[in-house]
């Protein structure tokens, strides 16, 4: 790994002040450190944001669950409050990576990285999330721009994510057996305002499958998805799965997600 200067910020203000065109924020580091070791990324300054108190904690109200950006996956998975308010969200967190990754990796880090196969981005789209940053609030719909690309501006820091509590929901992941990343992950959430079906792992960026949402709005059952055809033109095709196989996984995973909704 190439040398850099390590800074530990104690407030959001201090962190954003330290940021430059050649810096990056460090949270759990579960992607960032391996990327720097492989020389895929390198920075002059690395600004650790984990010691910022405002970035920690879980707050549950009747309508939403607000999770601090530096909250670890293990803490979301084990939170009794999250388990009660949105069981699909704590369950998603409990199956990210492996135990050691969950002991370090954070929510903010995951969505800032926006890996096309990461789990959390699908939760943000399915649960109508609002991403709180050092500057503003961004709707999830406008946040995930493309592969590893978000609406974040240089030096903008995610402080928390606000998830809307659905009537019922479930996340079904078909994991790659080696990496545990989603080959396909389908997050179904039934809100008063309508059903969201968010899909990760299948395209270059997380997206909502509107045809499925329409069918489930009319009839919220797995059988409503029978006969829905998935367009394969935008689907990833790689050594793990062809586009056609992913299309099949999307349909079967979506059905399972609907069946397990609670």
């Amino acid at each position: 790994m190439k040398a850099f200067n390590y800074h530990s910020a104690s407030s959001v203000k201090e962190a954003t002040k330290l940021a430059s065109s050649n810096s990056a924020y460090l949270s759990g580091g579960m992607t960032m450190i391996p990327s720097m070791k492989m020389r895929l990324a390198n920075y002059k300054d690395v600004i650790d944001v984990k010691k910022i108190k405002d970035l920690h904690g879980i707050k549950v109200t009747s309508k939403s669950v607000v999770i601090g950006a530096a909250t670890k996956h293990a803490d979301v998975a084990n939170s009794k409050e999250v388990q009660k308010a949105i069981p699909s969200l704590s369950s998603l967190a409990s199956r990210i990576g492996d135990a050691q990754v969950r002991n370090r990796g954070t929510l903010g880090g995951s969505i800032a990285n926006n890996d096309p196969t990461a789990c959390y981005p699908s939760a943000c789209l399915a649960l109508n999330a609002i991403i709180h940053t050092s500057d503003r609030k961004i709707e999830a719909e406008k946040f995930f721009k493309g592969m590893f690309e978000t609406a974040l501006k240089k030096g903008e820091l995610i402080t928390a994510v606000e998830f809307q509590i659905p009537e019922k929901s479930h996340y079904f992941k078909f994991p790659n057996p080696a990496s545990r990343y989603a080959m396909v992950g389908v997050y179904v959430a039934k809100h008063k305002s309508g059903v969201h079906v968010a899909i990760t792992g299948a395209q270059s960026v997380v997206y909502r499958e509107k045809n499925m949402e329409k069918a489930l709005n009319d009839n919220f059952s797995a059988s409503a998805l029978n006969g829905i055809s998935i367009d394969t033109s935008e689907l990833n095709s790689d050594i793990h799965a062809s586009a056609e196989y992913r299309a099949s996984l999307i349909l079967s995973s979506a059905k399972k997600a609907v069946e397990h909704c609670k």
Binding site: Y6, G29, M30, N103
Partner: peptide, 13 residues
Amino acid sequence: GKSVKSCTLLVAD
């Protein structure tokens, strides 16, 4: 007290 992968952790951290 918690298990972590030491190859992906900065000592400074």
